[in-house]
């Protein structure tokens, strides 16, 4: 039995006269013990999916089970066994670290000591500040406390909605390290993020855009399914280089990518052709090499296909 099974889930909102189709028939499965990522920009429908799976919203059609319980019928059963960290900081700001933790333990009918082993690694990092009010913690520490609170009752499935949004690179990295540790303790984790580079840290991901899942698979599978050559190009005048590349009919697409431009080549064209073309347009000094696509490249290609 899958930890989470989602079948054709649909959610619409009314906004004035218009109907916003937030989730348009989404299906996926998450195996037990898996770290599953839903990757997509704001407005892709990630939060709506999380809220339906945590029984906070009713789907308009379709359905899903979490640990075998139906999200509509068995909502009370689900509320007993999942952990949830919503996108916004969701602790009591005027309660101390300790008070928050004990409060959450009590409402989940457990105690801090009972499941301490699970949160120990994370909690020791914030323990020095246990008498500090949660509102006075740094962003990274708040996040750790929220994670402890969501874990305190040893949930079967943990839902983390955009835990790393607006968090700096250091805290993000630490957070992902914590998630990988939790996964080893057998907890199924669903996490959503707008950061494409975090996809590679998941076991499997679903790439979402505008209410639909574009593809699902392991990061490797998704990268392997990218069926074009990508060349990374760099020159002194990056902006000019991009203009020149975009005018070339041998490419599918060209866009900036960190310090390089990524160029998706049409079939039959390779590095040699590009060197000739760039030499003819005044970029003989360009540094060109082949690269493996990243999840971000794949995401963009999938987006373009949808536009077509």
């Amino acid at each position: 039995m899958s930890a989470v099974a989602v079948h054709n889930l649909v959610k619409q909102y009314k906004s004035g006269k218009a109907i916003i189709e937030a989730v348009q028939g989404v299906s996926f499965d998450v195996a037990r013990g898996e770290l599953f990522g839903i990757i997509g920009p704001d407005g892709a429908g990630k939060t709506s999916i999380f809220r339906m799976l945590t029984t906070l919203l009713l789907p308009d059609s379709g359905g899903a089970t979490v640990d075998g319980s139906d999200i509509v019928k068995d909502y009370q059963a689900i509320r007993q066994k999942v952990g949830y960290m919503p996108g916004r900081f969701s602790l009591y700001q005027d309660l101390t670290v300790e008070e928050n933790l004990h409060f959450f333990a009590t409402i989940f009918k457990t105690s801090v000591t009972e499941n301490y082993t699970l949160i120990k690694d994370i909690y020791v990092q914030i323990e020095p500040f246990k008498t500090r009010k949660a509102g006075k913690l740094s962003g990274g520490m708040k996040q750790k406390l929220a994670l402890c609170c969501a874990l305190i009752h040893k949930p079967v499935v943990l839902f983390l909605d955009e835990p790393t949004t607006g968090v700096d690179a250091v805290s993000r990295k630490e957070f992902w390290d914590m998630l990988r540790n939790l996964r080893q303790q057998g907890i199924t984790i669903l996490v959503s993020t707008p950061y494409m580079d975090e996809a590679s840290l998941c076991d499997r991901v679903a790439l979402m855009q505008k209410g639909k899942i574009m593809t699902t698979g392991t990061p490797q599978q998704i990268i392997q399914s990218f069926n074009h050559n990508i060349l990374a190009v760099k020159a002194q005048n990056m902006y000019g280089l991009l203009q020149v590349l975009k005018q070339w009919n041998a490419i599918e697409d060209a866009y900036s990518f960190g310090e390089y431009h990524h160029v998706i080549m049409k079939e039959r064209y390779d590095k040699k052709v590009m060197r000739q073309y760039l030499a003819s347009t005044g970029y003989a000094d360009a540094d060109i090499h082949a690269v493996t696509p990243t999840i971000e490249d794949c995401f963009m290609q999938l987006m373009q296909h949808k536009h077509d």
């Binding site: 809220r51 945590t54 029984t55 906070l56 009370q76 509320r79 007993q80 999942v82 949830y84 960290m85 919503p86 996108g87 916004r88 900081f89 969701s90 602790l91 009591y92 700001q93 959450f104 409402i107 989940f108 009918k109 609170c149 969501a150």
Partner: peptide, 13 residues
């Protein structure tokens, strides 16, 4: 507003 109600609802209480 603070989002804590969301967490409370997704709890056995």
């Amino acid at each position: 507003e603070a989002g804590t109600m969301e967490v409370m609802l997704v709890s056995p209480v």
